[in-house]
Design a binder for these strands. Structure first.
Length: 597
DNA sequence: GATATTCCTG
DNA sequence: CAGGAATATC
């Protein structure tokens, strides 16, 4: 036993180290059978008679000092329990097993065919534009549109006729040649990029799969000007709108639009190749979305439980409009722990099961509490757009029970994590160097299951974390009042469970154990099993010894308090809480480690 | 008033 | 685990 663990809290339980009683006596403290029997009729207590019987001290003496930890000695129970053999108590525990029922009835995509189709579409567009500047615009658009919402052939013919009248294109020959050449280059790039074009392309929801498949074409050109600068949905809308315009300007406009999109798509694709090739192995959605949708803070492959901004259910007034870019880059940095803080992650990549269990137990109640979206981009327009991504994003996002309670469907699919994007459970995250180097971290706007897991692990050290500690440990979360409250609530819930278990086991011990010396909490004890099952379900966290000591102290506190019948008093637990809260340890640095850059 | 905590409930 | 009520503390 490392004495240092006691150096900090060097506390002595008021119930164990009694004022005026020698430690030996304290250690052999036994219950007064009469008292017990009077308080708990029917509970028979067998007492050891191997030492002087010590009658129960008066309560005034027992809890005479509010500050139980300050005045008293001692690790008395350590010294006085030399035969601490972890035999402890074998008390019944109520183990719970969650039923395995995870249905995932969402869409399935034929990725191969989808990619080919998309690529063919892009190439077709380019081909059309390259071959004939006069028609390619509409041709390409018509083609796209045809794919999208089933545009009829005659409609396209009419449109083409409008174009053939030579009304529209006001580009000079020089401009056209320049564009022509540019498009050839683009096409060459696309050929080299290959399937990567899907990255950019797939970013756009196809209309036929979108809930907004029936857009109204009442937009005006002015709307185009405004909307196009906002979102890609605006672009999309404009393109469709323009298609139905009969004015010749639309030709040029559509060409511009198409050029713009193609250019963006290709540049994004090329960028993503050079910047993070491994990402392609995991999810081609990443790059394009990050750039376009600032709200789509998805980090596929980085964090399985990374949330996709969900439907905002909180009032925007509560949103903290905070300049987000505190750590360079245009993107919100998500910082996970660099190095495993545990020497021995027993289940290095067991997050799946852990998360799965968590998700299993979730009741899909749409209480509407979720993350907030502090940026303007996340207002209605963007959120509406996110809905259109549902189908495809559901395949890559893992709904977090913590932050996405309003998720529409119970999909709990996990993304197939690529070989370079592995993640160990919780905060013990082995992060892709690629991601780290590219600063593609994101600041979470909500708490994820991993955060919950981390919080549970933290509980092994600190039961009463301050807000400051929480902010330090959950550095990758953008703190708001709600986030803070949620974290505090978590620990409150943790404590609740903790104390309930303590009381339960203490009462059980009261029946069969009369000597506090035999009240120990070892790693094999049922009490610890119950606690570990709750806070460390995956058993991938090395619970510090200190926690066992605190648990033991807590158990004894409850034991004595109940044995004294203090549980009849209104707030008898508060005295215990007061003792236990002083036993907090600092969270290890690993919990607080910030990204190095 | 805002925040934090406990207790109860689902 | 979250929501809500009650309570305590500041």
């Amino acid at each position: 036993m490392d004495p240092s663990v006691w150096s900090k809290g060097m506390y002595s339980s008021s119930s164990i180290c009694l004022d005026g009683y020698p430690a030996e006596h304290v250690s052999s403290f036994q219950l007064d059978p009469e008292l017990l029997n009077s308080e708990f009729p029917g509970v028979s207590v067998s007492l050891h008679k191997d030492s002087e019987d010590i009658t129960m001290p008066a309560e005034s003496a027992y809890y005479s000092h509010d500050d139980a930890g300050s005045s008293l000695i001692c690790s008395s129970h350590l010294e006085l329990s030399p035969s601490r053999d972890n035999t402890t108590l074998h008390l019944p525990t109520s183990m719970h097993s969650s039923p395995a029922s995870s249905s995932c009835g969402h869409h399935e995509w034929n990725l191969n065919s989808g990619h080919q189709a998309k690529r063919a579409r892009v190439e077709h567009i380019i081909k059309g534009m390259t071959s004939s500047p006069g028609m390619r615009c509409t041709d390409g658009m018509a083609n796209q549109h045809e794919e999208s919402d089933g545009m009829q052939e005659n409609e396209r013919t009419q449109d083409r006729e409008l174009v053939d009248r030579g009304s529209g294109c006001q580009m000079t020959r020089k401009q056209l040649e320049s564009q022509h050449q540019h498009l050839r280059q683009l096409r060459t790039s696309l050929n080299h990029v290959g399937g990567v074009t899907d990255i950019a392309d797939s970013k756009y929801p196809t209309w036929n799969s979108s809930p907004e498949a029936s857009p109204t074409f009442t937009d005006t050109y002015s709307e185009f000007q405004s909307s196009s600068s906002r979102t890609h949905q605006g672009w999309k809308k404009v393109k469709l709108m323009n298609y139905f315009q009969s004015k010749p300007e639309r030709i040029k406009m559509m060409a511009d639009v198409l050029k713009h999109e193609l250019s963006r798509a290709v540049s994004r694709s090329v960028d993503s190749i050079f910047r993070s090739v491994p990402l392609l192995q995991t999810s081609p959605n990443d790059e394009g979305n990050v750039e376009t949708d600032m709200c789509l803070q998805s980090s596929v492959g980085k964090d399985e439980t990374q949330e996709v901004p969900d439907v905002q259910t909180e009032a925007l007034s509560l949103v903290v409009q905070k300049p987000r870019l505190e750590r360079a880059d245009n993107f919100i940095l998500q910082s996970r722990s660099r190095a495993p803080h545990r020497p021995k992650p027993l289940v290095p990549f067991g997050h799946d099961s852990a998360l799965h269990e968590d998700q299993q137990s979730e009741k899909d109640h749409n209480t509407g509490h979720a993350l907030r979206c502090p940026r303007k981009e996340c207002s209605e327009v963007s959120r509406a757009k996110f809905e259109t991504f549902d189908t495809r994003w559901n395949s890559v996002k893992v709904r977090s029970k913590v932050n996405s309670r309003s998720v529409r469907s119970p999909q709990t699919h996990t993304v197939s994590v690529g070989p370079t994007l592995v993640e160990s459970p919780s905060h013990v995250k082995i992060e892709s160097d690629c991601l780290r180097n590219n600063n593609l971290y994101m600041l979470n706007e909500g708490l994820t299951t991993n955060h919950l897991k981390k919080a549970k692990h933290m509980f092994f050290y600190t039961r009463y974390p301050s807000s400051l500690v929480l902010k330090m440990c959950f550095y990758d979360v953008q703190f708001t009042r709600c986030i803070t409250s949620q974290l505090i609530k978590w620990f409150s819930n943790f404590r609740e469970f903790y104390y309930i278990q303590m009381e339960k086991f203490a009462r059980h011990a009261l029946i069969g154990v009369a000597d506090v010396r035999s009240l120990t909490v070892g790693r094999e004890s049922e009490l610890f099993r119950a606690l570990n099952m709750h806070y460390n379900k995956a058993n991938d966290f090395q619970v510090p010894d200190r926690f066992l000591e605190v648990a033991e102290i807590t158990l004894r506190e409850f034991y004595v308090a109940v044995s004294m019948g203090k549980d009849c008093e209104p707030s008898w637990k508060k005295a215990i809480y007061k003792v236990i809260c002083k036993l907090d340890s600092d969270a290890p640095a690993e919990f607080k480690s910030h990204p190095s850059g």
